[in-house]
Design a protein around this nucleic acid. Structure first.
Ligand SMILES: [Mn+2]
Ligand SMILES: [Mn+2]
Ligand SMILES: [Zn+2]
Ligand SMILES: [Zn+2]
Lengths: 125, 125
DNA sequence: ACTTTTATTGCAACACTGTTGCATTTGCAA
DNA sequence: TTGCAAATGCAACAGTGTTGCAATAAAAGT
């Protein structure tokens, strides 16, 4: 993977963000006309492939991206995500790893756990 | 909610299905030209609102629908869903209810738990 | 430095999912 | 049967994401 301007900047945006970001949010955080829409999609896909970020499919079907806490690992360490319906943010709850056991022989390649409601911040205000 | 042809037929299709169905799958199972695309979307939304079916957002962001096991209840009884990458099916695993505890004061309105991989059937073949 | 290779990009067109406004139809209750 | 509101058809739209292809730019080789 080449170290291009787009890759750098987009990864920085996601890494520096407290919350998970959708494609359109990333686009809005980039300087006007910095790069093409398609490039953003491709960069995000590449970063996810590489394992430096991970995808979260929100309850509305829109994909969000967050940097992976532990650099090159735990791709499938199934943690929960929270979508706040008031402040419209998606956050990784890295500590919350639900406990469950699948029957028979299911092979898990990926997972997507999302809770939606009101976050503590918004509950307080 | 009125008992229309579209409502009846679409609900029957979902109720009688072993697997969760997407909008396009429902459409393909209806007689050619039975009703408009928009109507299907509206019916599905209505049935979900009413609580006779529930939504599952798949890992690709596409919404699937499944009849609710226990008629008019357990809207949020958070069970897991499985998406098989080989046979392209989404199934409710009603028995599998992950255990987790959220910190602070999160208010949960809805949840979406999906695992993706290879189902037992496809593993065997 | 210059050349070469090829990963990455821009562009533009596309597919797909889902939504909406509005006129018309239809279920259902009075 | 009549009247009303819910539901529908249609057609246009918005948003997300993908793709083919020619042009560009990393980065490795010379
Ligand atoms: Mn996460
Ligand atoms: Mn289910
Ligand atoms: Zn919030
Ligand atoms: Zn399968």
């Amino acid at each position: 993977m080449r170290n291009t301007q787009a890759t750098q900047k987009i990864y920085d945006i996601i890494k520096d963000s407290e919350i998970a970001l959708s494609h359109s949010e990333v686009q809005n955080m980039l300087p006007e006309g910095f790069c093409d829409r398609a490039t953003i999609y491709r960069v995000l896909e590449r970063l996810a492939q590489k394992g430096s970020i991970h995808k979260i499919v929100n309850v509305d079907g829109v994909i969000n991206y967050a940097a992976c806490e532990y650099a090159a690992n735990t791709p499938s360490a199934t943690h929960v995500h929270f979508n706040c319906e008031r402040c419209q943010t998606v956050t990784c709850l890295e500590e919350i790893k639900p406990n469950f056991t699948l029957p028979k022989n299911y092979k898990i390649h990926q997972s997507n756990f999302v809770l939606s409601g009101i976050c503590p911040n918004c509950s307080a205000n």
